[in-house]
Design a protein around this nucleic acid. Structure first.
Length: 593
RNA sequence: GCCCACAUAGCUCAGUCGGUAGAGCGCGUUCUUGGUAAGAACGAGGUCAUGGGUUCGAAUCCCAUUGUGGGCUCCA
C-alpha cells in the first residue's frame, strides 16, 4: 500500500522502522545463523523477514519482545554511514539477501527494499547496538525515542523473498509501535473490535451463512437469516435499477469455448477459470464474468444511435478459481454473485453516462450506511488495447465526473486494466477500515472482439463505448462488509427479524400473537417468543439476536391494547398503541436508519 | 499453490505420561408465570475431520488428504 509522504517523513515512521531494526537485533542475537531480509515500517507498524534455522513459535515472540524492551532501554544510538558497494559486500558477505539488495542498489533502479526507485541512491548502513543493517533510513537518533511501553509484536507469518513464490519462503514477524502507550492500547482495542466484528464469527452467531467441507471451499451457503438480508438488499437494488433506466437480463452459467475465445478470457483469464465441461464433444466453461453474454444480447438486434444508452443489469453468479490458501469467509470465495451491469453508449453520451453511473453508485452505497467514500482513478497502462483517443476521452470523462461531483480521489497512473481505464470506489466502515466495493470500468477490448456496432445519425456503423460496472461488487463480499460495518446489528430495513413480541406470562400469549399478526399484515418481519423463559431471558435472547424492536407485553399492555417498546440499544419507550408503533417502525424502515 | 499453526457434542472449549471422552451454552421434558440482558431439575447428544501407519492399545505419536486460521501471491 502506498504511504503518504507525510507518513514517511513522520517521527512515527522513524520509530517503527527503528523498532524493526531493534527486533532484528534481538532475533539475530537469538539466532546467530539468521539471514536477514528486509524490515520496513508499514501502515500500522512494521515487520522484518528472516531466514531462520527453525520455525518460530509464539513463545519466541515473547522472548524477542522482552529482549527488545531491554535493547530499547539501553539507549542505543543509530549511526548512519555511507559506504562503497565493495565495502557493503564485504560487510554483508554472510547475508545473501543483503548482497542481492546491494547488487540492485549498485545497478540502480531499486531501493534497499527492492522496490523500483528513480534515483540511484548511495549505499548506506545504520548501526544500532550490535546490529548493522543496509538501510536508507530515516531512523530515530537513539532508541530512547522509542517508547518500550508502546511496542508490541503481533504475529508470525510466512512471506516469500521479494513476494515471489519461486523464491525462498521466509519467516515474517509483524509488530506495531506507537508514540504512547495510549495509542498502542487504542490500536490493540481496534484489533480486538475487528475480531468481535469478524463476519465469520457473527455469521455463525446470527446464523447468517456457512461454508461446508463437503460442499467445497469458497462456496457459500446462505442460511435463512442471511438470505433474508440479501433479499432485502436485492429488492432495493432492483427498485433502484428499475427506476434508473436499467433493463434486467438473465444469462446462463456456462458458455461454449468459442464464446470465451472471442471474448479473450481463454487468453488472459484462463488461470482463473475452471476446467471445461465436455458435452457432445464441445467444451463449455463455467462463467467467470457475465459480459460476453450481455454483449450477445446487445448484438441480438441491430442498434440505432437512438437506442443508446443501453443499460443491462444482472445479478450474475460467476465462478472463479482461487488458489486454496486465499479463501476468506465471504470476502474471498470461488462462487459469487456480482451486481453487474453493462452500459453501451455513444461518445457524446459518455460524460453524462459516467456522471450518472458515479452518482448512482454513491447513492446506493450511502443507502447502506457508508458515509465516507473514496475514489481511485486508474489510467492507461503501458500495454493496452483500443484506440488511444478513446482512452483519453474515457479518462477525461472519468476524471471530470469525479471533479464535478467533488468526490475525493487518487490517481493511479498506468494502473488501469489493459482493456480500459476505471474508477474504483472504496468505503470506510464503522471502524475506519477501507473496503473496495464498486468498480466502473471502460472496456475497449470486448466491443472490438465482438464487433459491437450501432448505426449512427450518418447511417454508418459506429463502435459504442462500453462500461462494465459492479456497485456492491459481489453480494458475498458486500454482505461480509455490511456485517462488519454494523457488527451484526443491521438497521431495521435489513434485519432478518425486525420485531419480536415478548409476552411476560402465558396469559399474554394470545394477545402477543394478535399483535404479531397485525404487524405481519403491515409487512413487518416479526415473531413471538412464547417459550417458558422468563421475560429477562427473552430480552437477553432478543438482544443477542440483535432484533431492533422488542415489544414487551404484560397485564398493563394487554388491558390498554398497547405494547411496551424496548429498542436494541436498551432504550425503553413508554407504552404505545400498536398503530403508533407501526408508524414509528415504518418510518425508520423507510428511512433506512 | 507456498510457510506456520489448528480440527474433540449444534456452539465455545477442556482432555496430564498413549490405557476407547468432559464442561458451559444450546436442545428436549417437567416444574416455575416472572415487568426490561440468563429461574430450576432431569435428560438426550461424540466413529475425537477423513484415510493409512506405529503400538498389546491412539483423541493423544507419524504420514497423506480435506477443511479452517495468520500471512505471501492474487483479487469482486
Amino acid at each position: 500500500m502506498a504511504h503518504s509522504k507525510d507518513y514517511k517523513d513522520s517521527q512515527l515512521y522513524r520509530i517503527r522502522h527503528s523498532t524493526s531494526h531493534v527486533m532484528a537485533e534481538a532475533v539475530v542475537e537469538k539466532f546467530p545463523a539468521a539471514k536477514v531480509a528486509i524490515g520496513p515500517a508499514i501502515d500500522d507498524g512494521f515487520y522484518y523477514d528472516f531466514d531462520l534455522p527453525r520455525a518460530l513459535t509464539p513463545e519466541d515472540l515473547v522472548e524477542i519482545e522482552a529482549r527488545m524492551h531491554q535493547l530499547i532501554k539501553s539507549k542505543e544510538a543509530f549511526k548512519y554511514e555511507e559506504i562503497s558497494a565493495a565495502d557493503a559486500k564485504k560487510l554483508f558477505k554472510d547475508q545473501p539477501y543483503k548482497l542481492e539488495l546491494i547488487e540492485g542498489l549498485e545497478q540502480g533502479g531499486v531501493d534497499e527494499d527492492g522496490n523500483p526507485s528513480e534515483e540511484k541512491a548511495p549505499i548506506s548502513i545504520y548501526k544500532s547496538g550490535g546490529f548493522t543493517d543496509l538501510c536508507r533510513g530515516p531512523h530515530v537518533k537513539n532508541t530512547s525515542e522509542i517508547n518500550p511501553q508502546a511496542v508490541k509484536l503481533l504475529n508470525i507469518a510466512g512471506a516469500y523473498w521479494r513476494g515471489d513464490e519461486k523464491r525462498p519462503m521466509l519467516q515474517r514477524i509483524y509488530g506495531t509501535a506507537w508514540e504512547t502507550k495510549e495509542q498502542l492500547d487504542e490500536y490493540l482495542w481496534k484489533l480486538e473490535e475487528a475480531k468481535r466484528r469478524d463476519h465469520r464469527k457473527i455469521g455463525k452467531e446470527l446464523d447468517l451463512f456457512s461454508t461446508n467441507e463437503e460442499v467445497g471451499s469458497g462456496l457459500v451457503l446462505w442460511h435463512p437469516n442471511g438470505a433474508m438480508i440479501r433479499h432485502q438488499i436485492e429488492r432495493y437494488w432492483d427498485d433502484q435499477h428499475m427506476a434508473n433506466g436499467y433493463d434486467f437480463v438473465y444469462t446462463p452459467h456456462i458458455g461454449k469455448a468459442s464464446l470465451w475465445e472471442t471474448s479473450g478470457h481463454l487468453g488472459f483469464y484462463a488461470e482463473n477459470m475452471y476446467a471445461p465441461i465436455s458435452i457432445e464433444e464441445q467444451d463449455y466453461y463455467l462463467k467467470p464474468m457475465n459480459c460476453p453474454f450481455h454483449l450477445h444480447i446487445y448484438k441480438s438486434s441491430l442498434r440505432s444511435y437512438r437506442d443508446l444508452p443501453l443499460r443491462f443489469a444482472e445479478k450474475g453468479t460467476v465462478y472463479r478459481y482461487e488458489r486454496s490458501g486465499v479463501m476468506h469467509g465471504l470476502m474471498r470465495v470461488r462462487g459469487f454473485t456480482q451486481d453487474d451491469a453493462h452500459h453501451f453508449c455513444r461518445e457524446d453520451q459518455m460524460p453524462d453516462e459516467i456522471d450518472f453511473v458515479l452518482d448512482f453508485s454513491m447513492k446506493m452505497l450511502k443507502a447502506f450506511g457508508f458515509k465516507e467514500i473514496n475514489a481511485y482513478l486508474s489510467t492507461k497502462p503501458e500495454k493496452s488495447v483500443g484506440d488511444p483517443a478513446m482512452w483519453k476521452a474515457a479518462e477525461h470523462a472519468l476524471e471530470d465526473t469525479l471533479k464535478r461531483m467533488g468526490v475525493p480521489y487518487e490517481v493511479d497512473a498506468g494502473g488501469g486494466a489493459f482493456y480500459g481505464p476505471k474508477i474504483d470506489l472504496k468505503v470506510n466502515d464503522a471502524l475506519g477500515r477501507e473496503w473496495q466495493l464498486s468498480t466502473i470500468q471502460f472496456d475497449f477490448n470486448e466491443p472490438e472482439r465482438f464487433n459491437l456496432t450501432y448505426i449512427g445519425e450518418d447511417g454508418q456503423e459506429h463502435r459504442p463505448y462500453m462500461v462494465h460496472r459492479a456497485l456492491l461488487g459481489s453480494m458475498e463480499r458486500f454482505f461480509g462488509v455490511l456485517i462488519e460495518h454494523y457488527a451484526g446489528a443491521f438497521p431495521a430495513w435489513l434485519a432478518p427479524k425486525q420485531a419480536i413480541v415478548i409476552p411476560i406470562a402465558d396469559r399474554h400469549n394470545d394477545y402477543a400473537y394478535q399483535v404479531a399478526k397485525q404487524l405481519k399484515e403491515n409487512g413487518l418481519r416479526v415473531s413471538v417468543n412464547a417459550s417458558s423463559d422468563r421475560m429477562n431471558a427473552k430480552i437477553r435472547n432478543a438482544q443477542n439476536e440483535k432484533v431492533p424492536y422488542m415489544l414487551v407485553i404484560g397485564d398493563r399492555e394487554m388491558e390498554a391494547a398497547q405494547v411496551a417498546l424496548r429498542r436494541r440499544n436498551g432504550e425503553s419507550l413508554p407504552a404505545m398503541s400498536v398503530a403508533d408503533f407501526l408508524v414509528l417502525a415504518k418510518k425508520e424502515i423507510e428511512e433506512k436508519i
